[in-house]
Simulated scan of single mutants.
Amino acid sequence: MGLPPGEKDTVRGAVTIRFYRAEDREGVRRVCADTGFLGSPIDPVFEDRELFADYLTSYYTDKEPESTLVCEAEGRIVGYLTGCRNFRAKFRYHAFHNMGLFLRALMRYPFYRPASRRYLHWLLWKGWRETPRSLPSVPHFHFNILAPWRSVSRTRQMIDLFLDYLVRKGERAVCGQIVVFDRRRGEKMFERYGFRVIDRAEVTKYADRFPGSVYLCTVVKDLRENPRLYGSHSLSDE
C-alpha cells in the first residue's frame, strides 16, 4: 500500500518515518513481539509470537492500514505506530477474530511452557480488570520502537506525523494507553506533551519477572488546543 494522498516520508539521518505499506506487515509483527515485554522480547513471558502479534497488530495492518506508521532503518522495520479512527470496525473485527485466536491458543495450550500458560490465565481472568477505561469515540494509537533506535526526537517525529494525519481527517482529540513504571513521573511526563491522564490500572502480568509496579495509563489530548507533540522528555515505549 502506498502513502495516503498528501503524505510524505519524513527522514532523519538513516531512519525513515513513513506511512505503512503492505510489505511492512511482517516487520511490524516482529517488532511487536520483540518489544512485547516492557520494551524487550515477549518470549520469556509468552512463547507464541505469531498469536501475540495477531492479537495486537492484525486489525491495524489488515483493516485500517492507512492509520499506521513505521520507522525504517537499514532496510528493515525498527518501529511502528498503530492507530485507529474507526472503533466500531475494530470492535466488530475483534468480536470474530478473537474467537479464532482463542481456539488456536486452546489447541496449543498443552504444548506451551508454564510461563505461557500463566500469561493466558492472566489474559482470560485478570486482563479485562487491569485495563483502564478507554474513549471509544476518540481515535487511539500505540507505538513501539526497538531499543537501538529509540530517541526523544524520533518518538516525537512519529507521533507528530500521526497527529497531523488526524487533524487533516478532521479529528479533534486522540487517546492512547501507555505503560509507565512510576505513577507520579508518568503523569508529569504526559502533561509536558499536552496529554491528560483519565484512568490508570496496575498491571500484574509481569509480576514474577519485573520487580517494580507497572501501570497502564489511558491518556487523552485535545487536538484543538495543540495539534502537535511538545516537551523535553520522551514517552515511554511499551
Rank of each mutant, 00 (worst) to 15 (best):
P4S: 08
G13M: 09
A14P: 05
V15T: 14
T16M: 08
Y20L: 03
R21N: 04
C32K: 07
T35P: 06
L38A: 04
G39V: 09
I42G: 06
L51Q: 05
F52G: 12
Y55C: 03
L56W: 14
L56K: 15
Y59K: 00
P65I: 02
A73G: 08
G75H: 02
G75V: 09
R76Q: 13
V78L: 03
Y80V: 03
L81E: 07
T82A: 09
G83S: 01
F87H: 12
F87V: 06
R88M: 15
A89T: 03
K90H: 07
A95C: 06
F96K: 13
H97K: 14
H97C: 01
H97R: 15
G100M: 09
G100A: 12
L101Q: 11
F102R: 08
F102L: 15
R104F: 00
A105G: 13
R108D: 04
Y109T: 11
Y112M: 06
Y112G: 09
P114N: 06
A115P: 12
S116R: 00
S116H: 11
R117W: 00
L120E: 09
H121N: 11
W122L: 01
L123H: 12
L124A: 13
L124Y: 13
G127C: 02
E130P: 05
T131K: 04
T131G: 08
P132F: 05
R133P: 00
S134N: 08
P136E: 01
P136W: 05
S137V: 09
S137T: 11
V138Y: 03
H140R: 15
F141R: 07
F141I: 03
I145L: 11
L146D: 05
A147W: 00
V152C: 04
V152L: 14
R154Q: 10
T155R: 09
T155K: 08
Q157T: 12
Q157W: 00
M158W: 05
I159E: 10
D160M: 07
L161I: 00
D164E: 14
Y165S: 13
R168V: 03
K169F: 07
G170F: 05
E171S: 06
G176K: 02
F181A: 05
R183I: 11
M189V: 04
F190A: 10
F190Y: 13
R192N: 10
R200H: 13
A201P: 07
E202H: 09
A207N: 10
D208E: 15
R209K: 14
S213A: 13
V214Y: 01
V214W: 01
Y215T: 04
L216K: 05
C217A: 07
V219E: 01
R224A: 13
S232Q: 11
S234I: 05
L235V: 05
L235G: 10
S236V: 14
D237S: 13
